[in-house]
Design a protein around this nucleic acid. Structure first.
Lengths: 342, 342
DNA sequence: CTGTTAGCGCCTTCAT
DNA sequence: ATGAAGGCGCTAACAG
């Protein structure tokens, strides 16, 4: 059995309230403090956080919820958020659902039943908030939404995706490209859609038409992206450039390119997203858009801490950060003639 | 305020114990059940898991602890473990520490104070179990250790690392290589050390000597691996092959190879570890060792569930699974003459 | 099948 | 500075 105050009481003869005060930083006579300390370590005492939270109605814990632990980008972010939060004295419990709305709801229920003091959520691609969190005034704990923006009335941290897309488009245009294929992720996913939209508006600025067929929607999986890229790149009117709008899509596109033995940037120019290490390893060095991961994590932690410690008042905050480009060597002039593959 | 049984009691007039029985699947008269159900949904009732766990001394929750959420291999495993565990009715809370022993201990304390019913742990590279878990008989919840084996008296799931290394060595030898550089991870990390040892014994089987200087120890970071690989590959007596013993080290090596503009397998043969998508994307297709991730996850979940549901009896279990090779095209004959770089 | 009661471990007035 | 008492929300006897 785990030790409790009562056990310490037996060893020290002190009252429960004194022991409690000791553990909560109150004033206790030095000799008593010493006695409690000794007893505690002797008994391997550990506070029972259930009892504590039941009593105080606070868990000093925040929940982090994301679609997929396997996504390196999300993993990096929550890794940063966790650090900040732990630093502020909060425990962090991470849960994942599988891009399925139903299990997202279950996961939220689970966290709420743990009475988390706050929640960081990356919603499903479909862009719906968990039902339990939908009514802002329903007394649920504060929530910060990351990466994807399902609704206006909840705090969020996102990046300027449209702008990032615009930059990508302009880069490719500057190199002379007038055709592009875009791996645009799932229909309705705000982040990837906005990135694609940015490219499209850059192209339309110069009157370069991008046919609908060049914007391919898939789930956020490497394999689906590979297939989509394969389809795009084996067309006779293959685009001279390709843009992958997130990390999985980037990897999938790279696989297709390797399988088709296309050379970057000789046969094709490519711009990817997010995956710095991958971009550095892939010959000839991949041009990618990089999100400011540490800043995103920081902003999220900051927003949430503010809500948890001060009252639930104040305006809804939408922090929007800027991406940057990490240049590689995968963007060059379009080929004079499209070399056929397969 | 969150609703409690009392609120339901006020609405239905039923007693607390009837309400409790309803929520715990006991026999309740249909009309009463209906009334409770209505009241609960009306009040948006959610069980307070603190009170519940305080009372039952069970949290129906297991903790998963790993060094780094960012490690894709670990992320994949715990993703699988979580699924199995949730399926069995357990909640999962994931915590990470940063390869630091101290924060590992803190994280364990945190999880224990949450009274988790079981623990899945990937220990620090140094191979030490969290202090709180060291005395097997200390009444702590059951623990399953993954990937790294710090101790014999706790259940574990690992792969046959030495055998994997042996296979890699033999593959390279069969292609005619007699020299190899090994990125062997941190000193004392069981997994990567065993993989390196396997290669060494394969080479010694045929009397090929591998100088100590060719076995390079670094932390498990992409950047450190890149630097180490760079050093190895710019030596005048550069080895004709290189083996990276885990996923980060694989990516780091690939970056160095790209930077030095070495061609795989013309200038150098390479075998990596774990990262399937990466291996498929990297030209010309990377030969890697693949761990049976789903099986590892399954075995871990199974072992832990058995310990949690049945008594703490029985022998300590060490499940050892076999890896397989995923062939790419990065292993070929050694170059006739070593082309100098830089 | 339902109600009454006691208590899980802790914190928090309120006295002393 | 310390002690006594009550209760957070829930479950598990036990009675009815």
């Amino acid at each position: 059995m785990a030790a409790t105050y009562k056990d310490i009481q037996k060893m020290t003869g002190l009252s429960l309230s004194t022991i409690s005060k000791y553990f909560n930083g109150g004033n206790v006579r030095p000799d008593n403090a010493e006695a409690i300390k000794r007893a505690a370590s002797e008994l391997d005492y550990r506070v029972n956080s259930f009892a504590q939270s039941l009593r105080t109605q606070k868990s000093k814990t925040v929940g982090v919820l994301l679609p997929d632990l396997t996504n390196t980008f999300h993993a990096q972010i929550i890794s940063g958020v966790s650090l900040d939060l732990m630093h502020a004295g909060y425990g962090v419990i991470v849960g994942s659902f599988g891009e399925s709305e139903e299990s997202m709801d279950d996961a939220v229920e689970f966290l709420l039943s743990k009475m988390v003091d706050g929640l960081v959520v990356v919603p499903t691609a479909a862009g719906r908030l968990p039902v339990a969190l939908q009514s802002a005034s329903n007394g649920h704990p504060p929530v910060v939404v990351l990466d994807r923006t399902p609704s206006d009335d909840v705090d969020s941290v996102t990046v300027d995706n449209e702008r990032a897309g615009l930059d990508v488009g302009r880069l490719l245009l500057a190199h002379g490209h007038r055709s592009i294929g875009i791996l645009a992720g799932p229909q309705g996913l705000s982040s990837t859609s906005q990135r694609a939209a940015g490219v499209l508006s850059a192209f339309s600025e110069v009157g370069a038409d991008v046919p609908d067929a060049n914007v391919v929607h898939t789930a956020l999986s490497v394999e689906q992206a590979r297939q989509a890229a394969h389809g795009l790149l084996t067309r006779t009117d293959r685009p001279t450039s390709i843009f992958a709008t997130n990390s999985e899509l980037t990897v999938g596109a790279a696989i297709a390119i390797r399988e088709l033995q296309l050379e970057l940037p000789g046969d094709l120019s490519m711009v990817g997203f997010d995956n710095v290490d991958f971009a550095r390893a892939l010959p000839p060095g991949l041009d990618i858009v990089v999100q400011p991961v540490p800043e995103i994590a920081h902003a999220a932690a900051e927003l949430l801490l503010a809500r948890m410690e001060h009252a639930q008042d104040g305006q809804v905050a939408h922090r929007v950060l800027q991406c940057s480009m990490m240049r590689g060597a995968s963007v060059g002039a379009p080929p004079l003639a499209v070399r056929s593959v397969r």
